[in-house]
Computed example of a mutant assay.
Amino acid sequence: MDPKITLVTLGVSDIEDSIQFYRDGLGFPMRERDPDGDVAFFPLEGTWLAIYPRDRLAEDATVLDDGNGFSGVTLAHNVSSKTEVDTILERAEDAGGRVVKVAQEVFWGGYSGYFADPDEHLWEVAYPPLTAE
Rank of each mutant, 00 (worst) to 15 (best):
L64W: 06
V106G: 04
F42Y: 12
A103W: 01
G97I: 02
D36Y: 03
W108C: 05
T62R: 14
F107D: 11
D94R: 14
V85G: 11
H77N: 07
V100H: 00
D86L: 10
E105C: 01
V39H: 08
Y111M: 07
N78W: 02
V99Y: 03
V100P: 00
V102D: 13
D94I: 08
V85C: 10
I51A: 09
D86K: 09
G46C: 06
E84P: 04
D94V: 07
S80Q: 12
R56L: 14
D65Q: 10
V73A: 12
T74I: 12
P43L: 04
P53M: 04
A58M: 03
F41D: 13
N68C: 14
D36C: 02
P53W: 02
K101Q: 14
V100W: 00
G46W: 05
D65S: 15
L75R: 09
L44W: 09
K101C: 08
V63I: 15
S81K: 03
D60S: 13
L75S: 06
G97T: 03
G97F: 00
I88V: 13
T87Y: 12
D66Q: 11
E105L: 08
L57N: 04
V63G: 01
P43S: 04
E59V: 02
G109W: 03
E45M: 15
F70Q: 07
I88G: 07
S112T: 08
V39S: 06
F70C: 08
I51F: 02
L49T: 06
F107C: 07
R91M: 13
A50T: 01
G109Y: 08
P43E: 04
D86S: 09
E93R: 14
F42I: 08
S112Q: 14
V106R: 07
W48Y: 13
G113D: 01
D36E: 11
F42P: 02
T74Y: 05
L57C: 01
Y52S: 11
P53C: 02
G72Q: 04
P53A: 07
L89M: 10
L49F: 02
D66K: 04
V106N: 09
E84N: 03
R91D: 09
S112R: 07
L75Y: 01
G96V: 00
V73S: 13
G72S: 04
R56G: 12
D55T: 09
R56H: 15
G96K: 00
